[in-house]
Write a protein that binds this DNA or RNA. Sequence first.
RNA 1: GGAGAGGUGGCUGAGUGGUCGAUAGCGCCGCACUCGAAAUGCGGUAUACCUUUACGGGUAUCGGGGGUUCGAAUCCCUCCCUCUCCGCCA
Length: 427
Amino acid sequence: MLDLRDLRKNPEAYMQALEKRGKHFSTLAQHFLVQLEKRHALLQDIEKLRGERNTLSKDIPKLEGGKRAVELKKLTTLGKKLTTEERKLKDLDAFEKDQEIVLPNVPLPDVPVGPDASGNVVLRERGNRNAVEQAKDYLTLGESLDIIDVKRAAKVSGSRFGYLKGAGALLELALVQFAMQELTKAGFTPVIPPVIINEPYMAAMGYLAQGGADEVYSLDRDKQFLVGTAEQAIGPYHAGETLSAAQLPLRYAGFSTCFRREAGSYGKDTKGILRVHQFDKVEMFVVCDPLQSETEHQKLLAMEEKLVSDLGLPYRVLQLCTGDLGFPSAKTYDIECWMPGQNEGRGEYRETHSTSNTTDYQSRALEMTLKREDRTKVIPHMLNGTAFAIGRTLIAILENYQQPDGSVRVPDALQPFMHGITIIRKA
RNA sequence: GGAGAGGUGGCUGAGUGGUCGAUAGCGCCGCACUCGAAAUGCGGUAUACCUUUACGGGUAUCGGGGGUUCGAAUCCCUCCCUCUCCGCCA
């Protein structure tokens, strides 16, 4: 959530910033602001009434007989008035909650302004894209090697599911092991979080707004949700806590299965395992002092580039423009890996990684506080970034490491975790 | 899933309708004593929000929500969580 006090204090700044994400957001904020002011006035009235009531109430025990009756009468009238006012406030709050959740984070000043993905900026490209001749796509490779099976998955679970099998399954575990090894070295704490979380936390993380509710799987009977990323389960880990400066930055490497309904993507990437309802992912998550969040963000991006480079995958780095930012994000970089088998064998960059600075948008909703050395209190910043999204990384590996005979070499970095397999061949 | 017990400030733990935001102890901070420390004594020690230039003032919070009442930590309803026993289970 946004800083509502600040919003009331500097409305113009918020309008300008939100407008960069799209006109309708600033319009929403405008309406919301009116409600906020109304609420503020109402609350002040109520607090005054409550004060009067409390003062009167205090004397009651001391009074007797007629005097007492008179005062009680006064109190009754006051109480009735209060009840109506409080009812008004409650209605307003319910309305506000809906509104508030509709406002996304404000982009940081250095985020390029643009309407949608077309405004994203390519920052750099790395690696050799032309290493593979006549590339086959991963699904052809994976099925012939019998390490990916989406046909049977369709029978068992429906579309957008997949089985990883044999060396495919081992590759997933190798990727996880490798990521955990590197991240542990870099000071991240490995975490395996629950994948079912309570509704208020999903909301606090900003994933129930703007169609987000359609994207997550909900367990209606229990009012819970399946996470779409470990971020949603790790962020709330410290909810309600006051963190000391000495504890920060907190760096977590979360491994979890991720569930996505892919409701808005009918017809998109329907084949294979590029876009599925369930996949596993190692995710980096950082909590830090607001002054450090930009540095931490760059570190997360650097770690992502390192991991991709360690696998020897060609990639490019994109900075998302204002119109393409995720709801809770103030600034996002994506990494797209080169997948030579896509686009009819001509190759294509596809998103495999994403890192966002959500500033205090999530941490505020999670009611987190940072007590600095000087005892002042601020709201810490939170950031997230992909280490490996298994499915998509697997695709990039298969397509980039394929050999003319249809076998696939195992990247050097993963070989220590592959039980001696260096080349994946047809059985 | 069934039966029972419980959820109060950083911790332990009192408090069954009104000067209770809450006794007491521990812990923590400050001061005194001491060469220093321990022990001891004295004082202080919740959070959020609103308001005020400031001093200060106000409101809310005793697991969450709702209700009864002029007034709720205290009574009622409901949900959540923890513990014990039983059942089921990787």
